[in-house]
Nucleic acid binder design. Structure first.
Lengths: 372, 372
DNA sequence: CGCCGTATCTTCGATTTCGAAGGAAGTTGG
DNA sequence: CCAACTTCCTTCGAAATCGAAGATACGGCG
């Protein structure tokens, strides 16, 4: 999708514009040029006109949408023991989302080939006939070098270090390929649910702790590790050595994995972060106290970042995010210690995009590549 | 300066482009269009052709510069007891820079009116006749709301809270006005000296501690307090209550003011941060130890931010920055504790722009307003 | 209902921008 | 010193874009 037409498609697909007039306002092009381009896009089957929008005091706009047959995106979100997989249309709307078991410990080759097969599977079962696949993407639970699409020094992905994931995935599909850290994808997905927020911190609290950062509406990648907060030193009485070799990392105290190991030591059996949430909801005091403490520690770390970045909102996602005490204690810590100017109008709340945030984010980022 | 021509002027003025060919590459316009626009800009007296640049293996480019008579910017950097004032041409090159005593404690009205008079003074003494003033700007040692140009909750500027600085300054000059936090200006100025770095953290170590953040080549303002690190809690044995009401803020241990008060208590008389630097250079052990400790504390705070932001470089400026042990211990702390991916290729060094960084930054930001 | 104000969208001539081709000015390497 | 290659810049017809004017559609109000 070349140049100006691509820009217009992007605006429609991202949900920023719904009519020719809105496109003209947002793209900076003249209304007449927009009409011409839109005409062409409709003729080529990428856009469709669909009913009328609501009037703003004059003639009602003719609503534009991406054609459902314009294309599909296949996206995945890899976890340690399972993967979420989905098909999206070019506007980022999911056609189908599934969760399947999958062990990343089996190594990158096996995992990626399995993913490619699963994509084919989904396409055969749920892909409307004649609609072409336009891009594939996946989230990875570790740092990804944005330039090369390689995994870099992941802490809990044996055998994946420096593996060219994007290349391997691209070998199955001759299409744009996106490989990105899972917390970053989650942030990109969440960003679409917070259209008024230009700067966003998105915390992923699951077995690990990750964070994605949106600055000026765009994902901030840094060198591929941006958003890392797991290895911040926390104030603590005891001393625990983290897998990274340093003492008292946040991850060693506040991650889902850390909470689970404490609970298991106390004789309370838990297998997944969701079990911890269930215990909290059942009012088990040991679990609640642990989660509160984790929230406080995370909140204290966020304090530094909130003062520095001044985000418009902090969004908490991941499997632990449904534990209300977690968010409450994060909120308390941040509001207590941050500068008033930084917390004024700062919103801290749970995910709006839900468990598919990372898949939606993959769609959003892939779109840029597809319409480049 | 309208549209495309403004873009070209901005590129030349900001130092990004020096020839028609570079303008074409950076602006995205066709080479032929650039030639046309440049021709017009030369005819209207804003650009001048000046000799030839260095060859890149072919014909040498004809070097373009902003005409010295295209306009002037008057800029200032307010400190607690003195102000730096300067006149710049539109390319940001200083014609004259002076430091004059000035007490911000005398209140905003008196200070700003004094500044306006000082600008007129400089113009009369050093302004080439016939060259118009095109904009004025100043840095403020406290948070500034970027939307309104008001000072917001400054910690050491009695009487300034919520004062409309931009409005008052604008009353003297019917021109674009810039009012911005001093560390932010310093970051903007430093950014021009680090053209390869898209993401930059600029630390201002003077009587206070401030930091400015450049993301994707642009200043990140947040809500006006972005870049604040003074009130991060540090790990410490003793307990000191900061002026902000919390305990153990970085500022209370590592700012120039804190170092001075400790030295004075020890019977070593110092009056300005520069005196501390002099003591360090003279090898006074008490001073060196204090500065080392300050660097370590600052470095530990930066650790969190470096992991999170993944900057390309950390630049240390401010009056304490010439103390070599400060930078050395910051470097040590960051390299020791940060993730390898974040410190790989991370540069940590002293200011390249020198003491005028904030003035240069003011010029750089003002230019955008002037050429809008 | 009919008129007015507003917003959306289209038409069409004027303007701007593009891009391929070519001339100008240097470097490199035999 | 000359030929081959690069880079810089301009020329000129083709194509895209603009913007003013007009056509179309809607809400609101007497």
């Amino acid at each position: 999708m070349r140049g100006a037409q691509g820009d217009l498609l992007r605006l429609v697909a991202a949900g920023h514009a719904e009519s020719r007039a809105e496109l003209a306002r947002l793209s900076g092009l003249a209304a007449s040029s927009v009409s011409l381009r839109v005409e062409e896009l409709i003729d080529s089957g990428l856009l469709v006109e669909e009913g009328a929008g609501t009037s703003r005091g004059g003639r009602r706009p003719r609503r534009l949408r991406l054609s459902p047959s314009a294309g599909l995106l296949a996206v995945a979100d890899l976890g340690a023991h399972h993967a979420r997989l989905g098909l999206l249309d070019l506007s980022g709307t999911p056609l189908v989302v599934e969760e399947r078991p999958c062990e990343i410990a089996e190594g990158p080759e096996a995992t990626i080939d399995w993913m490619a097969a699963a994509f084919e599977d989904l396409l055969a079962a749920h892909g409307p006939p004649g609609v072409p696949l336009r891009g594939v993407g996946t989230g990875i639970p570790g740092p990804v070098d944005p330039a090369t699409g390689r995994v870099v020094a992941p802490s809990r992905m044996p055998g994946w270090n420096n593996f060219p994931v994007a290349e391997r995935l691209g070998a199955h599909f001759d299409l744009p390929v996106l490989v990105e850290n899972d917390a970053n994808l989650m942030a990109a997905g969440e960003a679409r649910s917070w259209p008024k927020c230009q700067t966003l911190m998105v915390l992923k609290a699951g077995s690990g702790i990750g964070c994605g950062l949106i600055v000026n509406g765009a994902l901030h990648r840094g060198r591929g590790a941006a958003g890392d907060i797991s290895h911040v030193r926390v104030r603590s009485d005891s001393s625990v050595t983290c897998s990274c070799g340093h003492d008292d990392c946040l991850e060693a105290y506040a991650s889902g994995a850390a909470l689970m190991s404490v609970l298991n030591e106390q004789g309370i059996e838990v297998r997944r972060p969701a079990d911890v949430v269930a215990l909290v909801e059942d009012g088990v005091p040991e679990a609640t106290a642990l989660v509160r403490n984790a929230g406080r520690l995370i909140g204290e770390v966020l304090t530094v970042l909130v003062n520095f970045i001044n985000p418009d909102a902090i969004v908490v996602g991941g499997s632990l995010s449904s534990a209300e005490p977690l968010i409450a204690s994060i909120r308390a810590a941040v509001y207590e210690r941050c500068l008033p100017l930084a917390t004024r109008d700062l919103e801290i709340s749970a995910t709006r995009s839900g468990p598919d945030a990372a898949l939606l984010g993959a769609g959003s980022l892939l779109l840029d590549a597809v319409l480049a």
